[in-house]
């Protein structure tokens, strides 16, 4: 067991913001979500935070741990605690704080709806999915066959709508109407799922708008922070390339 100090951002409407320090007794193998759960269960039940799946599938628990955006359910305690200083846990940036670690996500979900993000997609014809599995575990991808009654395997999209990219994005701090990395990545996905010209025009129009891809400062913080390897920055760059190419073709009177 370890004795771990943890410093948590606190705020309730009408009160000044502050940091409360708790000392928790916890197993060395714990994840940071277990630390937050322990503070709530043993020290202060008024602490408000989101959590659900505890395995990085729901995206609800995203916070900042020692200043960096993370999903505490997949961050090991020993990876963020130096054995002395308190672990600092704060809410995501660029979202209004409702209470403690809880942020208002309505705007964010409205953007994801506008970007037409679907939850399921067609699966690749191979397993495993993670690119570095060979480097870490020596596991090579293998091709799969479909069962007779299925026309395709499907699976949930990589993006879990956790809001981490929105918090890490420097552009969000200068333009709070910026669609944001998750939304733009969703537009890219939706655009590549359709050949319908009207739909493509609508999606590219969104990306090309005042708060779209051209607002991005190319800091690539979103890709760095994303816990699901969505790589929003490269998708923003791909949308820019497509939009630029379309303009060039239009300029020279070529078919788009």
């Amino acid at each position: 067991m370890l004795t771990v100090p943890v410093e948590i951002f606190r705020f309730k409407p009408g009160q000044a913001q502050r940091y409360d320090t708790f000392t928790v007794e916890i197993a060395e193998t714990a994840h940071v979500i277990d630390v937050i759960d322990t503070v709530w269960a043993k020290h202060d039940p008024t602490l408000t935070f989101r959590r659900a799946c505890h395995h990085s599938s729901c995206g609800s628990c995203a916070v900042r741990i020692n200043g960096a955006e993370k999903l505490p359910c997949i961050v090991r305690l020993t990876d963020v605690w130096n054995g002395r200083n308190p672990i600092r846990i704060e809410p995501l940036r660029n979202f209004p704080v409702v209470s403690d670690l809880l942020v208002e996500v309505g705007d964010f979900f409205e953007r994801m709806s506008a970007a037409s993000m679907t939850i399921t997609c067609e699966a690749e014809g191979f397993l495993p999915l993670t690119v570095d599995t060979f480097a870490v575990a020596g596991v090579l991808p293998k091709t799969v066959e479909l069962p007779d009654n299925l026309s395709r395997f499907n699976r949930f999209e990589q993006c879990i709508e956790c809001g981490i990219c929105m918090s890490a994005c420097p552009t969000m701090a200068t333009d709070n109407k910026f669609i944001g990395p998750a939304g733009l990545a969703a537009i890219y996905q939706a655009r590549h799922k359709t050949d319908d010209p009207t739909r493509v025009k609508h999606l590219l129009g969104l990306a090309d708008g005042e708060h779209g891809v051209w607002r991005c400062h190319s800091a690539f913080e979103c890709t760095e922070a994303c816990p699901q390897a969505v790589d929003p920055a490269s998708k923003i760059m791909a949308l820019r390339r497509e939009l630029a190419l379309r303009r060039l073709r239009k300029m020279f009177g070529l078919r788009i």
């Binding site: 913001q17 660029n94 704080v97 705007d107 409205e110």
Partner: peptide
Amino acid sequence: FERQNVLKRRALAQLQTSDRPNIGFEE
């Protein structure tokens, strides 16, 4: 969340924005 957002936008308009903490990029 979108529904909560609509309701909260109405309620927030009546609140002083200075009551809310700033967790902006500068931090």
